[in-house]
Amino acid sequence: NRDPSPTVSLAELDHLVQIISKSHLETCQYLREELQQMSRQNFQQDEVESYQSKPREAMWQLCAVKITEAIQYVVEFAKRIDGFMDLCQNDQIVLLKAGSLEVVFVRMCRVFDSQSNSVYFDGKFAGPDVFKGLGCDDLISSVFDFAKSMCSLHLTEDELALFSAFVLLSADRSWLQEKLQVEKLQQKTQLALQHVLQKNQREHGVLSKLRCKVSALRSLCSRHTEKLSAFRAVYPDIVQTHFPPLYKELFG
């Protein structure tokens, strides 16, 4: 719990909240109205089986495409965060390479239904069994657990936006050239998040719960990298020729 920096006024925090929330809403892939209209239809058993009977490489490719689509929205989100584009190009790339998938996992709670333990994927709601063909049951189950636990916090869009920005602006990423600049941005974002949580009269524990989520996100992403390496070792040509180029750039 750092003391608020004397250089950040309440007006500045309010402005930051506005900018980051607007950026989030403009780039969140699915609008709240669309989410409400989306039929909460789960895949039928025959559809689940059809995903499960896909060759492992086809399922990996499908998921790589979906992740890449989601990441493109995160890149747009980053570009609209106040101060992000003022960072040097090296640091913009470092932050997105390390943090874009983490933000995709954070955003997943918007399209996750805790009751049925399913996530919006490829047109309907999918439970963990849909992803069996990937051969990464443990990772999938951790991703679902993470989404469920994010949902249980019932974050508002403002809070989600600020937490996403906080994750993206992590100043402890390796290879940053202007660490101090990133640290300043992250600290301001954290103050804005605290400000919003206070304004929304959230209980004190939410911020510390969110801090725990940061380490959970890192673990999910490093396990994704491990699973990809294992997959690539068996199917190097599939990754090389069929995976989206942006996915390969980020995780290769």
Partner: peptide
């Protein structure tokens, strides 16, 4: 890093719509 991340760099360069 920029050289190894041409697509990401390009996405960052594209103006926001």
């Amino acid at each position: 890093l920029k050289e190894k991340h041409k697509i990401l760099h390009q996405l960052l360069q594209n103006s926001t719509s």
